[in-house]
Design a binder for these strands. Structure first.
Lengths: 199, 199
DNA sequence: CGACTTCCATACGCTGCCGTACGGTTTTTC
DNA sequence: GAAAAACCGTACGGCAGCGTATGGAAGTCG
């Protein structure tokens, strides 16, 4: 998030550019990663950019690396290990739906959109894999046999993605406030009921 | 999907341009709606375009109208009225997941991505509203009280969107063939079990 | 067949972005 | 504190796409 528009206190690093590029991706897609506009937003010029990077592609790559780095270190660990799988899932949903309701949405949304770019596709593939694997573990621990766990994990994740989509583009279609909490509970019921090994 | 590359038999109509624009949107997003490339793909030149349209925005608008037209007339009616709500939902899922697995995905995916454009946002809002309303009816008929019906409809639709997303960008994460059928059944179980008025 | 409308091709200028060249300024190092 | 390194500003050339202008070709109607 890196407060954009700091008054150019010191000089810039490659990381600053990568973060700015991520910001741009979030609310403009890959196409918004344009050197000159970014330079303007950072209060600098292309001269800076082409010193740190060989070109636009290098910036995109760096931004993707930075994204994977962040998402790896942050998101899943925030849930912690405490509680039953159901409770962890509840925490996860609360966090993600709240996040989706606030800002312009998670970055993967924008990235999924232009998965035409090979580097983007690869990064998205990796992150998606990690997340679904995490969810599969959760459902397995909840008592689902492997196949069922995988299916429920998939439904949970596709539901998350779709939710994020709607939050960004048709926010009016989603419940707010207490209704949102009810909705999360309803989804949890649907996801956790039945399908366990020993009922 | 409107066989592109017909050998320029006769002259072009505005609809031809709109369809070509929709094709472009499907696999390149709104940014791919560029007059000169489209002209090349249609085997004509800008001269034609600027006779039929006032400019790029007009083309985008026309394409969106065409999309709404198609999706209104086609998709929901294909399900028909026969069978229980559960069976209709099964048909719907079968159709949509199969469609997502084949081509480059439904157009709304690309459109959701750049919902920054006001006309796009409006069109997406309308279509989303219609679809969710349809699903709400389905769950209501299945026996869910209104609030529950709305929540399940939402989960179903967000699940659909996320599924389409993954199908386009991380197809490897989704089940195929018989597993896909199992998955649909699993999702149906999750969506239809419990939550009815009179259990 | 000729006038008249409809439709398309070509040529042009404009803008936004990429990438390069190079001189200048700041910071580091000794 | 001066040379070296790191960093940035500015000016340029190039390309792609938008939109305009204008001359024709292809259909239509008397």
């Amino acid at each position: 998030m890196a407060d954009r528009k700091r008054p150019r206190t010191s000089r810039l690093s490659a990381r600053d550019w990568a973060d700015a590029a991520l910001d741009a991706i979030r609310d403009g897609g890959l196409a918004a990663v344009a050197v000159e506009p970014l330079a303007a937003r950072l209060g600098t010029t292309k001269g800076s950019f082409y010193w740190h990077f060989s070109g636009r592609d290098a910036l995109v790559t760096a931004a993707l690396e930075r994204w994977e780095e962040r998402e790896t270190e942050a998101v899943i660990l925030e849930i912690g290990e405490a509680g039953t799988p159901g409770e962890r899932l509840r925490r996860l949903f609360r966090i993600t739906t709240a996040a989706a309701a606030r800002e312009s949405g998670p970055i993967e949304l924008a990235l999924l959109a232009d998965a035409g770019h090979p580097a983007v596709a690869a990064a998205v593939r990796r992150v998606t894999g990690r997340r679904i694997a995490y969810l599969v573990d959760l459902f397995a621990e909840h008592g689902c046999p492997p196949a069922e766990a995988r299916q429920r994990a998939l439904l949970a994740y596709t539901g998350y993605l779709g939710h994020a989509q709607l939050a960004r583009s048709v926010p009016g279609a989603l419940p707010r406030d207490e209704e949102a909490a009810d909705y999360v509970e309803s989804v949890l019921r649907a996801l956790l009921s039945g399908g366990r090994r020993e009922p």
